[in-house]
Design a protein around this nucleic acid. Structure first.
Length: 506
RNA sequence: GGCCCGUUAGCUCAAUAGGUAGAGCAGCGGACUCUUAAUCCGCGGGUUGGAGGUUCGAGUCCUCCACGGGUCACCA
């Protein structure tokens, strides 16, 4: 079916929820403020400090110490609560990282300004100028001399005590989530720091960060179903990438010996607490190394992330404590199957029996090949039992069409997955560099594709041609950034670490 | 896609056995110059997700639909 994505479609109008008494009250206030000549949407605001900086720098001082300093501040923020007592008002100002109390007195700001302040609503953004002091209960507070409106909030905020609980609303209107739930901002600040640290890690080792196509004529580098789109001028189908892998290895052919990319992948598959259709992947490739080197590098990376970001090696995750102490455990794929699947070792000798057993686990996607059957058993029975960081080594070659065969067993691939808390966090191999072999593997995949397996790899002859010019021995790896964030931030759903996870449009 | 659970005021939640839809916060009016889930007095606010059905009577029972959460399947 031809894709119509470039044809303009009218955006569905934002529903205008019917007005409530609260909306009406705020409209009236806006009108009254306009009459009073108050500019509700000024162009810029003075600022000597952020709320966060004030709390950080002054909260520890004593009342007397603060008094001596006579600290004058101009600070913007959003009003989260108001406590009015006649001719004086306390309110809470927030900048999403911290909260700061402000204290407004009629005898300080004047009668008119105080009257106008009563038109302030919870949710409004204002700028206050004043002096820091501590109340008799010891709370750091700004005694306000003057204030200005920076933006009017036209809707009531979620309830102040319980915050915003509705999970759907939290994702659909992430801004409300960020305003009401300070933990949420912390997760995304952590994510940002983590990515910055990853860049520092690779840059320090001489890696070059690159960007490769997000729109590809042949979606390669992973076994997954792609999103399809259409380029009008060229008249061709394009696919959103499922992985950058094949392009990054073309760069290694070209002599960029250490490359990495942090960017989005798109897979047209189910949504779950561990899957979002678009997700962020780190991929890195290093010439002259193999998957053993990648294991070392992975341990080093994760260990250093933990120390740099948290200064510790152990983290709570749900009910578990995850330790990133080196070295991580290593478990042969085959041994994992033997020890965790509950299947008698002898039964692995019979290919048909393995396939039959796997079929009882996976109702869909039949008939399974031997390799896929093993993987189904592994994913279902073994992976969930692995809690501590563990390299799962040498899976079947059949499900690893881009990896070199194992030096120890030609039926296995030189590949590992890093599993933590039952989640696959990383996937790496000694990259297959023999173009003839690669062509053969692609052809085998094409057979599977013909049989109806939509997650087989497509044939990419342009990539084979690149290999024909010579890919040096190369270790390559992908690390799921979202899942790594889940681990470090102790979040059980990928939607808690993606600002705008995909939801059905309203 | 299957199964389970949910959807009631702007938000967080109640509502016995099928019998007048409530509370807190938020809002509005009033009192109050160190409060902090401020307090006190008063007021307004609902197509109970939608459409049918059973019943004298449905938030409650039944059917279908929509959306969400969890889980399984697929995947990273």
């Amino acid at each position: 079916m031809p894709d119509k994505t470039n044809e303009k479609e009218k955006p569905s109008p934002v529903e205008d929820p019917r007005k409530t008494d609260q909306d009406i009250s705020r409209e009236e206030k806006i009108a009254r403020l306009a009459e009073a000549g108050v500019d509700l949407f000024p162009y810029r605001a003075e600022q000597t400090h952020s709320v966060f900086a004030i709390v950080r720098d002054f909260a520890a001082l004593t009342r007397e110490g603060l008094e001596e300093k006579k600290a004058e501040v101009v600070v913007p923020g959003r009003i989260l609560s108001i406590r009015k007592m006649g001719r004086a008002t306390f309110a809470t100002l927030s900048d999403s990282r911290a909260k700061l109390q402000i204290y407004l007195r009629e005898d300080q700001v004047g009668e008119k300004a105080y009257r106008i302040f009563s038109l302030l609503d919870i949710g409004d953004i204002i700028d206050v100028r004043g002096t820091l002091f501590k109340t008799k209960t010891g709370e750091l507070t700004v005694l306000v001399q003057a204030y200005a409106f920076l933006a009017k909030c036209q809707h009531p905020l979620p309830e102040k005590w319980h915050g915003l609980q509705d999970v759907e609303l939290r994702y659909r209107r992430r801004y409300l989530d960020l305003i009401m739930n300070p933990d949420v901002g912390d997760v995304f600040r952590l994510r940002s720091l983590m990515i910055a640290e990853i860049r520092r890690f690779f840059d320090a080792r001489g890696y070059v960060e690159v960007e490769t196509p997000m729109m590809q004529p042949i979606p390669g580098g992973a076994l997954a179903r792609p999103f399809k789109t259409f380029h009008n001028a060229l008249g061709i189908d394009l696919y959103l990438r499922i992985a950058p892998e094949l392009y990054l290895k073309r760069l290694v052919v070209g002599g960029m010996e250490k490359v990495y990319e942090i960017n989005r992948n798109f897979r047209n598959e189910g949504i779950s607490s561990e899957h979002n259709p678009e997700f962020t992947m780190l991929e890195f490739y290093e010439a002259y190394s193999d998957y053993h080197d990648m294991m070392e590098l992975t341990e080093e990376l994760l260990h250093s992330l933990c120390l740099t970001l948290f200064g510790k090696e152990e983290f709570p995750y749900g009910d578990e404590v995850i330790s990133f102490k080196r070295p991580f455990a290593r478990l042969k794929y085959k041994d994992g199957l033997l020890s965790h699947s509950g299947l008698a070792p002898a039964r692995f000798d019979s290919r048909s029996e393995v396939i039959a057993f796997a079929a009882t686990l996976a109702a869909e996607n039949q008939p399974l090949s031997y390799g896929k059957a093993l993987d189904a058993i592994f994913d279902k029975l073994v992976k969930p039992k692995i809690v501590q960081p563990t390299f799962i080594i040498d899976p079947p070659k059949e499900i690893s069409p881009l990896a070199k065969a194992s030096r120890e067993d030609p039926e296995q691939a030189e590949r590992f997955e890093l599993v933590v808390a039952g989640m696959e966090i990383a996937n790496a191999f000694s990259e297959l560099s023999d173009p003839q072999e690669q062509r053969k593997r692609f052809e085998q995949q094409a057979e599977e594709l013909k049989k109806g397996d939509q997650e087989s790899h497509w044939i990419d002859l342009d990539y084979v041609q690149a290999l024909e010019y010579g890919l040096p021995p190369t270790g390559g790896e992908g690390i799921g950034i979202d899942r790594l964030t889940m681990l470090l931030a102790n979040r059980k759903s990928i939607r808690e670490v993606i600002l705008f996870p995909l939801l059905r449009p309203r």
